[in-house]
Structure formats: C-alpha cells, structure tokens
Design a binder for these strands. Structure first.
Lengths: 248, 248
DNA sequence: CAGTGGTCTAGACCACCGT
DNA sequence: CGGTGGTCTAGACCACTGC
C-alpha cells in the first residue's frame, strides 16, 4: 500500500475488501477453516467492523463464507447442485424424490399469490403439506404444498395419525390423479421466520423461492412453494447435474 | 405497545420495521410513489438511519422497493416474469428470443467454472459474445456467451464490422449446428461492475445467475452465463408464463 | 464463563440527480 | 445548488455457542 494515491474513481472500501478476501480464500484457506474474528479482521485491514461486515455479507451471499453466531466465520464448501426439474413431470411425493413430509393441516386462508394460482375462493378449504428437503445431511429447502381439499376428496378422516402420516396421505392421493403439466418460477426472497428455523438460518436470510404449479384436469390442482437456501444451493434444471455429466 | 411484555424472543427492530413498512406499502402507497427520505423515515420510527436502511434493504431485495441515489425510494411494480426455458431447445440467437447482441471478442482465458464446463484447455481461443435482454424498455439481464472458436470455424474474418455485427456472426454460425440438449443452473450472485452498469444497478447488487450449457455433437459447445436483476425479475420455466395462462 | 457474530446508535462525509 | 441514497466510523449492547 504505502501512500495510496489510487482511486481515481474511488472504489468503496468494502468492495475492495471483498476482492482481497476473496483472493485470500482461494489461495490461503481450506474449506471449513475458521477465519479470524470480525474485530480482528477489521483491525488488520484498518477499517471499522461495520465495513468489514459489509464485505463478509457479500461473500456469504455468494456462498463463499458461512457465518454462525457464537461460533465464527468459516470457508464454505462449493454450492450443492440440487435438481429442481426432473426429466419427467411427477407429482410431489412421487417415489424417489428426496423430500420428507413433515405434517399437513387444513386451512381456509392461503397467501394471496397462491390463491390466485389455485383460483380458490376465499373460505375454500385447502390442504397445506409441509415438507423438508435434505441433501448430504444438510437441510436445503422447506416447502409448503397447497392442494384444494376438493381436489383430493379421499377418506383421510380416519383414526388419528402422526403428523408425517397425514402429510403422506395427502401426497398419496395426488398420485392417483393424472398430471397434465407443470411450470415453475424462481425468484429471490428472504426467509420467513418459520422457514429460517427449518433451514438453520436467521430470519431474512436470502432464499431462492421456487413456485411450482401442477396442472391436472385442465386446472391448477396444486401449488408448491419451495424455499431453498440461496447461500448453499445451486438449482439445476434439465437433463442432469453438471457433476454427473463431467464424471461420464 | 404500553408495557410490552411480549417478545420472549425479542424480534430485531429492523425486522419489525420491515413488517410495518410492508403493510404500509400494501395499504397506503401506489406503485411508483416516492417514500419519505431515509432520514425522515428513521426519525418517524424513532430508529437510527442504519436500522431503517436495514429494513429498506430487505424490502428492496424482495422487490417491493426501488432505491436510487440522488432520487429517492419508490414503490416497485410487481416483478416481471421472464421466460428462461423455452418450450423447445434452441440456440441462443435463434429468431424470436428477445436478446440483443452487443459485441463479440475472442479470448484465450475464460472463468474457471466456464472452462470446466466447456472442457477447454488453457490458451484455447473462445468467442465471447455479449448480449442484453430488455423487457418493457428496462434492461433485465446481461449475458456472456462462450463458444470455443473451434466449434464455429466459419469465415468470420471478413471486412471490419460493427460490434453487434460480429456478435451476430457468431450467433448465426451456431444455428447451423444440431442442438442435442441443454441444461441450466440458477444461483444467487452479486453483480460484477460491468454487469451492474448494464443493468443500471450498483456493483454487488443481487442477481440471479443462470448458467446454460448447450450440447452438440456429444460435447458442450457453448455456455451462456446470464445475470438477471434479482430485484425486478421472476424467472419462469416450463409451459408458459403465469399471466398468459390466467388470461385464457 | 469468554468469545463469537448480530443488532443498534449518532454522527460524518461522499457520489449522484435534478433543478 | 440542495436533496437523495451510499459509504464509513467508533463505539455499545445483545444472543448464541462452546467449554
């Protein structure tokens, strides 16, 4: 450094910091390694802690770092590729998907965006199935699946069952229907408090929200809203995961 | 409030603020309307400006707000649905896509991730085509398309052409090849300086990075890295856009 | 308990936009 | 030029983790 005369177009400090840290991560740190704490890093770079944190936040957003309160900041492993669109259209809960049913409830109020997709009227009963997706032992996604009760009029009123069993019952009924099509949207969101808990993140953490519409009998029969951890996930669409192809 | 006994788990102020602001946006503001400036809002809510900004940042991330330096904070329109995966596989630059070629260069160095996908060796020449995607007059995405020069050995050495013409030449050559397949990944990233300029955002702005692999002749023939504005875009995959279906 | 990251404050200055 | 959002500082306290 010395007498820095540079910065004709002053680059924000945190931006420059991010670059420096990023290079250091590539060359001097191994995955899982713990970085010095924020106060020390800030001192080492001669900036306020808030500025240092701005750089760390960006790197975390890009999946380079992982920070945990009370523990420290570690170097994150490369993002996991998670398959979102299987080769053939299938209902959620079809054999082979790696989602785990959590529970199921019934409600007559759903988010406005979901009601619009399902074309339900206010007050109409809808099953809400919660599921989790786990990859390599890490939770990567939480899902809420909305199915109008009218679409699956099965005899689910049997004896009291466990929460996962109720979820499985709804999913099982879906398989009976003919799936005519599906489409998806992906957008950025922030984790609601409940999702955050499931994903082992703080509320507000960045997530990729995948909304899937399932079409059967000429109408939207189910809507799944899946929230994936944006810091650790790379969503894959199409033929196959990059890794498996390169291995071939 | 009064003597708030609630909050056994105290909710952060900025989180609560975000909720309050979000509700206010729904009920009291119209799209495009300008909010009071940050200093005034902070005073009105009795918090430091930094705290207020934390809430605004989240709302901007979710596409509810739009902030511009020197101008102010406005209520954002709903996110635009942009089709990412067409019904049939096509090469980039096929007639009908709404990308605009910007320029094309040749280089022997590409990002490591791209080189891995293309299986190019260091030093191998690769065409790099820049394109922009514009929807409703707003730039929504910037793209870098990488094509190994060996894959398109056409006679592009003709007379000097304009930058867009060079780009079109490469794209045109691609159409001649048979496209055998493609797959995509979507992940969260932050805008590089150059992308940020094209997208009319500040560097580091959150973007959705779509990486498309085009397969021809049994190998990866092209890789497109498209960065979409995460604040304004909702990527759509599959049959069709939600809007067009609901309209039917 | 000590140490970590997360939240919050009250200020300052800068870069940018429109008038 | 005045007003906006963007950056930065130097502190403080809190919530969580692990020993």
């Amino acid at each position: 450094m010395g007498t820095t005369q540079l910065e004709t177009v002053p680059e924000p400090k945190y931006w420059h910091l991010k670059t420096v840290l990023s290079d250091a991560l590539d060359s001097e740190f191994a995955v899982g390694e713990i970085l010095p704490n924020e106060r020390e890093l800030a001192a080492r770079f001669g900036v306020a802690r808030a500025t240092l944190r701005q750089a760390l936040e960006q790197l975390e957003l890009e999946g380079r770092l992982q920070r945990r309160r009370g523990v420290g900041t570690t170097v994150a492993p490369p993002r996991v590729g998670v398959a979102v669109a299987p080769a053939r259209h299938t209902w959620p809960g079809a054999s082979g998907d790696d989602w785990q049913p959590v529970d199921a409830t019934q409600s007559d109020t759903v988010p406005a965006a979901v009601a619009r997709l399902l074309q339900t009227v206010p007050g109409e009963q809808v099953h809400i199935v919660r599921r989790t997706r786990v990859t390599n032992g890490q939770p990567v996604a939480a899902e809420l699946l909305y199915v109008p009760s009218a679409a699956v009029p099965g005899h689910t009123e049997g004896p009291v069952r466990s929460a996962p069993a109720r979820a499985r019952a709804v999913l099982h009924e879906l398989q009976e229907l003919e799936l005519e099509g599906q489409d998806r949207t992906v957008e950025l969101g922030s984790a609601r408090a409940e999702d955050a808990r499931q994903l082992d993140r703080l509320p507000g953490a960045p997530v990729l929200v995948v909304t899937t519409r399932y079409v059967s009998g000429g109408r939207t029969t189910a809507v799944a809203v899946s929230t994936y951890r944006a810091d650790t996930c790379r969503l894959t669409f199409g033929a196959s995961d990059e890794v498996s192809l390169l291995a071939g």
